[in-house]
């Protein structure tokens, strides 16, 4: 059997972020179940492509990276359909997110990824992305007016924030951090787990709005040739391990953020941060103002896929 000494697994953030925890567990389970025949090593920080997360997918397709636990946002420059999860206010809650990833939409997206030269195995989660800023609590679209927001990943974010009257700026995290501290940029959007691990309240981000405008599911995937080099038994081990690691990742990513367990939200409130939860009416105002962006991007993502997603969510 012609296996490599080491398989390179790319991720963006390491443990204790849920993302890194999921990747670590995958590596652990595979090593355990193959008796070390498949030895994987996690390279966080997308260091295998010099930290450029939007090149991760290309590098995996080329075999420079063997495997990855990657974000749908970061892979959307290569796979336009992944912009589905960045469609504004498509998914109102976790049940909607699960209806997509665990339903026909998830299967369709895996097919598309296969057509794009990688083998997808399972889903994990970075989380719903919430908006934070240093200026004022955001309850209405008008509150976004003139705020300088750091975004990254896809032009759809520029479109959304422009539609809300904010000034989006594409900026890597390395530059965003000092920009947020100095007030050169007012706000950013990220899952709350990222907010809390990075202590963003110390960067002056003292207003958080839980608006669930987009979610960022993660996908476990393997380069096609590497995948085909494995025996069917090992392929099954890899896939099953990814599913279990993904389930753990999703559980950790939602800890303290579910309806019955708001502990993370409370912890963040404890830092003196104003956390706003939108009412249905308030949320609708944001839905309305970003509707043109939604319609415009439906063409890019694919009419059929968007309708399929809407249907899955309606029947969740």
């Amino acid at each position: 059997q012609d296996y490599k000494d080491e398989y390179r697994v790319s991720t963006v953030v390491p443990a204790p972020f849920p993302w890194g925890i999921a990747a670590d567990r995958w590596v652990e389970l595979v090593a355990e179940r193959t008796d070390g025949r498949i030895n994987m090593k996690v390279y966080p920080g997308v260091q295998l492509v010099q930290g450029d997360q939007t090149r991760e997918f290309t590098a995996m397709r080329r075999g420079i990276i063997d495997m990855a636990v990657g974000s749908t946002i970061n892979w959307s420059p290569q796979v336009q359909e992944l912009n589905l999860f960045s469609m504004p206010f498509l998914m109102p809650d976790y049940a909607a997110l699960d209806a997509l990833t665990q339903g026909p939409v998830g299967e369709r997206i895996f097919e598309i990824l296969r057509e794009n030269g990688v083998e997808p195995l399972a889903w994990a989660e970075n989380g719903f992305r919430e908006v934070t800023n240093s200026v004022r609590p955001i309850r209405r679209p008008e509150d976004m007016e003139g705020l300088k927001m750091r975004v990254v990943g896809s032009p759809i974010f520029n479109d959304m924030f422009s539609a809300m009257g904010a000034n989006p700026t594409q900026m890597s995290w390395a530059d965003a951090q000092p920009a947020l501290t100095t007030g050169a940029v007012d706000g950013q959007e990220n899952p709350l787990t990222i907010y809390s691990v990075l202590n963003m309240h110390e960067l002056g981000q003292t207003n958080v709005t839980l608006w669930h405008y987009v979610a960022d599911p993660l996908i476990f995937a393997v380069n096609q040739e590497v995948w085909e080099s494995f025996t069917p038994e090992d392929q099954e081990i890899l896939r099953q391990a990814a599913i279990e690691a993904g389930a753990l990742g999703i559980e950790v990513a939602r800890e303290g953020l579910t309806e019955d367990d708001q502990s993370l939200v409370e912890e963040i409130r404890g830092y003196g941060v104003e956390v706003v939860t939108l009412t249905d009416e308030e949320r609708q105002a944001f839905v309305d103002v970003t509707r043109p962006v939604y319609e415009e991007w439906t063409a890019t993502v694919g009419e059929d896929l968007v309708r399929m997603a809407e249907e899955s969510i309606a029947n969740r």
Binding site: E145, G146, S162, N167, T169, Q170, M171, S172
Partner: peptide
């Protein structure tokens, strides 16, 4: 208040 997002 204009956006200059393409600079990066």
């Amino acid at each position: 208040n204009a956006s200059f997002a393409f600079t990066e």
